[in-house]
Write a protein that binds this DNA or RNA. Structure first.
Length: 500
RNA sequence: GAUCCCGUAGCUCAGUGGUAGAGCAUCUGACUUUUAAUCCGAGGGCCGUAGGUUCAAGUCCUACCGGGAUCACCA
């Protein structure tokens, strides 16, 4: 901390710290034997049997201090909530003598007995108190009260989004309710992991630094390995390495980890984001739809305790079965047009008829994509499997067993957003090579996001991959959906920010 | 990448060309069951940065930095 940059409040705390040392008080002791947390005490206190909590030790950060002369009330906050502390000078003369050196933000430990105050608040009457960590930087503390209905009213909350994201540790202290989002995030991921583990699939780790990137259409981040003096890419998808493991003989593998895409940022895009991908041998996309219905039910039950999820003013129902609709049937349903099998000129005309703006250089697939996102997606509120996509959109998906020009693919849409993507994986090496060669042509044509041909990946398919179903779920967006958050930054502890 | 909006005390904000403000927080003092504690008094500012217009700029103009929203690309 630089002397010249210190504010008056910081300077004051620094002086208090030295004063504590000069009085022989250690402002940073090594441990504290906590026996109870705030939530336990508040939920277990009994007015008939206060003796059940006659000796507790709690610890937390001072969030409010009300000095009444020879008695003081504090609120301390731990991970589970807040609890009031009652201190009396005649019972704690030593601690009370340096109480004026303590501030909101300091962390203290209290040992005492639980009682209910005259005003009705369950509190800890301190018999011993100790400073556990002196805070040198003031936190932007907000005041709160409860209205007649018991709703919390917060005054002057710490609300500057930039500061909240940059100083998330402060945000978590002063806006503790945001912890629930992250707790749910953790539960969603662990529910998913438990579900797959219970099915007997194996969690694996594959390279994030890759000599070639693949598995999705996106621009990568590039980095450099000094000792070997060559460039590496941060992965944009997990897909190709997991398929190599299926080739290698594992019959169900999954990975939950970060992907990186060097593209724009907005409410639904962060440069690094978390993906789950799973590949299961001998299964197809029909089987995977059944599994996804089960998986989502399991996640909702475990993380939220129910299968009906409130998002905005909507209620999303995750009870199975989810609707299954062919992509081209949905086009007809929402545009009244049959788009299947149309060539580029015909598609362009349809787009015009529908008043969908199309960039001049758009391919046939791009036109379809555009019509879908403008005319269909926002109708797909309740969980809907959109199935059977055009082949050109999906270079890693297997051709449809009965429908020409389509692949066996589904995307799960909820609340108008894509949440999961799955194919029956392409395991015909001749077809796979051709499809990636076609991508190379698209790429040569100027599409930077077209897939790159990974010769080693194709060789692995040539060695022989069993029929396989693969599924990807964007974890951040799933968490947004299930926790009713509008911005990806509110489900990431530390969203990417420009340096200050 | 484009457009619009925002940046003033630790926090939340007012200030619409003429002496930089409020609430909370901080500091003095009073108060042994308070709770947005209360009451007395006080301190605290490169008004995002750099230029420009003007007798005079927090305020008007330009550029830059940072953030937000919308759009484009994408998951």
């Amino acid at each position: 901390m630089n002397e010249h940059q210190r504010t008056d409040q910081e300077q004051r705390r620094f002086e208090e710290l030295h004063e504590l040392y000069s009085r022989g008080i250690n402002p940073y002791p090594h441990e504290f034997n906590r026996t109870h947390n705030s939530l336990y005490i508040v939920s277990h206190f009994s007015d008939e049997h206060p003796e059940l909590l006659c000796d507790v030790a709690v610890a937390g950060r001072i969030m409010a201090m009300r000095k009444m002369g020879k008695a003081t009330f504090l609120h301390i906050q731990d991970q589970y909530g807040r609890i009031q502390i009652y201190l009396k000078q005649d019972e704690l003369p030593e601690f009370y003598s340096y109480l004026n050196l303590l501030d909101i933000g300091d962390i203290i430990g209290i040992q005492g007995f639980v009682f209910r105050t005259r005003m009705g608040e369950i509190s800890v009457h301190a018999m011993n108190a100790v400073l556990l960590a002196k805070s040198l930087r003031p936190i932007p503390i907000a005041k709160e009260e409860k209205d007649e209905d018991g709703n919390k009213i917060i005054y002057d909350a710490f609300s500057d989004k930039e500061l909240r994201y940059r100083k998330r540790y402060v945000d978590l202290i002063v806006n503790p309710e945001i912890r629930h989002v992250f707790e749910k995030r953790s539960k969603i991921i662990s529910a998913m992991r438990r579900y797959f583990d219970d099915m007997g699939y194996m969690e694996v780790e594959t390279p994030i630094l890759q000599p070639l990137y693949g598995g999705a259409s996106a621009r990568p981040f590039i980095t450099h390995h000094n000792a070997l003096d060559f460039d590496l890419y941060l992965r944009i998808a997990i897909e190709l390495y997991l398929k190599r493991l299926i080739v290698g003989g594992f019959e169900g593998v999954y990975e939950i980890s970060k992907n990186f895409r060097n593209e724009g940022m907005d409410k639904t895009h962060n440069p690094e984001f978390t993906m789950m991908e799973i590949y299961i041998a001998y299964k197809d996309y029909y089987w995977m739809m059944d599994m996804v219905e089960d998986l989502f039910g399991h996640i909702c039950e475990y993380a939220l305790g129910k299968k009906e999820v409130h998002h905005g003013n909507k209620v999303l129902n995750f009870n199975k079965p989810f609707r299954r609709a062919k992509m081209f049937d949905l086009f007809f349903e929402y545009t009244g047009k049959h788009l299947k099998g149309l060539n580029k000129a015909e598609l362009l005309q349809s787009a015009r008829d529908l008043q969908v703006e199309i960039p001049s250089d758009a391919s046939a697939m791009k036109i379809l994509d555009e019509i879908f996102s403008q005319k269909v997606e926002h109708h797909l509120i309740q969980p809907t499997f959109v199935i059977d996509y055009p082949l050109e959109m999906s270079p890693l998906a297997k051709k449809h067993r009965t429908e020409d020009g389509l692949v066996e693919r589904f995307e799960l849409f909820v609340n108008g957003n894509e949440i999961a993507n799955c194919f029956t994986e392409l395991n015909d090496p001749i077809d796979q090579r051709k499809r990636l060669e076609d991508q190379a042509l698209v790429r040569a044509d100027g599409d930077e996001e077209a897939m790159i041909l990974d010769e080693d990946f194709i060789q692995s398919i040539e060695v022989g991959m069993p029929p396989t179903a693969g599924l990807g779920i964007g974890i951040d967006r799933l968490v947004m959906l299930l926790t009713n958050q509008e911005s990806i930054r509110d489900v990431l502890f530390f969203p990417t920010m420009r340096p200050e």
